[in-house]
């Protein structure tokens, strides 16, 4: 046994080395030289502006990851000469760290670490690449590092608006919310939604069910069934597993409010509105800062006021005019500060 294993491992290793050597000899050394590529961020116009995204789920997930990929696409459309690289599906935090480090060492101008869980790693990586700018979200901390931006979404604001609408539309007074784990953006949204619903109808009972998983679609579906059994006639939820809950809502004719991306396509009959993130609003600021030589140090937030958060109504759903007016009033109230989301 021993010899067999030795030898194949040895051969495998040898093959790897040989191939690696081939790779080295034919390749030039752009990737290994850390700093050269990006010394001048305001270099010649012919040089493309290079943006890399590292994100936890699929880039077309109709939720968190897609929101940043779409935003960078918008930026690309506006600026023209932009090169975009994406490493998606990187839920393993250490793998994300490796990818962030990799892009930084390849001299990307802006590396976007699109996951709260990546922050701790970024704090260690960013100082090693002072010429590269990093953006981290959703978070509200730049660690005092000069080349780190952070960005967050005031998802409680959109949540509050939709909570108000939900309470106004609910006939039973029972509203169901499906969440993953009570953390971060999910908690912010859910708390805002619940606050809005209760503000609109103090007698409303808002049932909140955190299933304990970001990925378990079947559990999210059954959580929605439980809400339905408890009498909910309006529901909402956040994170990628809610697609299961939307299906149940559709089947039972329960109204749905979406967040992070426009979820109308999942159930055109019952989706009332979605809170949609437009990160391009803050990306524009970050990039113009970058081009004037400021690589970080700012905390950005998208919200209803700056247009980074937009409530997109489903045109196919006949939203009563008074409820729509209520929503618009609530948005105006949040924007001018007369309404607090309680967050």
């Amino acid at each position: 046994m021993r010899r067999r294993h030795t030898t194949w491992l040895a051969l495998f290793a040898a093959l790897m080395m040989v191939l690696a050597a081939c790779g080295d000899s034919t390749d030039d050394t752009t990737a290994t030289d850390d700093t050269e590529a990006s010394t001048e961020t305001t270099a010649a116009a012919a040089e493309p502006f290079r943006i890399a995204i590292v994100a936890p789920s699929a880039s077309n997930d109709l939720a968190f990851t897609q929101s940043i990929v779409d935003a960078v696409d918008v930026i690309k459309g506006e600026m023209g000469n932009v090169e975009v690289a994406v490493t998606d599906g990187t839920f393993v935090v250490e793998d994300a760290a490796a990818a962030i480090r990799g892009y930084a060492s390849e001299g990307y101008d802006l590396v976007i670490a699109h996951g709260s869980q990546y922050g701790g790693s970024l704090q260690e990586i960013a100082p090693d690449f002072p010429e590269v700018s990093f953006a981290w979200g959703t978070a509200a901390d730049t660690f005092g590092i000069a080349n780190v931006y952070s960005y967050e979404a005031a998802s409680d604001e959109g949540g509050y608006v939709m909570g108000v609408m939900a309470a106004a539309l609910s006939e039973s007074g029972t509203i169901g919310v499906v969440g993953p784990i009570e953390v971060g953006d999910a908690k912010l949204y859910v708390d805002g939604f619940a606050a809005g619903a209760v503000a609109q109808n103090p007698a409303a009972s808002v049932n909140i069910n955190y299933t304990g998983s970001f990925g378990d679609v079947a559990l999210a579906s059954e959580a929605a069934q439980a809400h339905a059994a408890a009498g909910a006639d309006v529901m909402s939820g956040t994170a990628q597993m809610v697609v299961g809950a939307v299906g149940v809502a559709d089947e039972q004719g329960i109204l749905w409010f979406g967040t992070q991306a426009n979820q109308t396509s999942l159930a055109p009959d019952i989706v009332v509105a979605s809170q949609v993130y437009h990160w391009e609003v803050i990306l524009r600021d970050i990039i113009s800062n970058l081009q004037s030589g400021k690589l970080g140090g700012e905390i950005y937030s998208i919200n209803l006021a700056n247009g980074g958060e937009v409530i997109e109504y489903n045109p196919a759903y006949a939203l009563p005019d008074d409820v729509k007016q209520l929503a618009e009033d609530t948005i105006a109230g949040i924007v001018d500060g007369s309404i607090s989301t309680g967050g």
Partner: peptide, 23 residues
């Protein structure tokens, strides 16, 4: 070793085991 040798020197979860262990 994963925690104390990680980039971040802290423990963080994305809600799944694999996010921490990398399988």
């Amino acid at each position: 070793v994963l925690v104390f040798g990680s980039e971040s020197h802290r423990m963080v979860t994305d809600g799944s085991t694999v996010g921490f262990t990398g399988s």
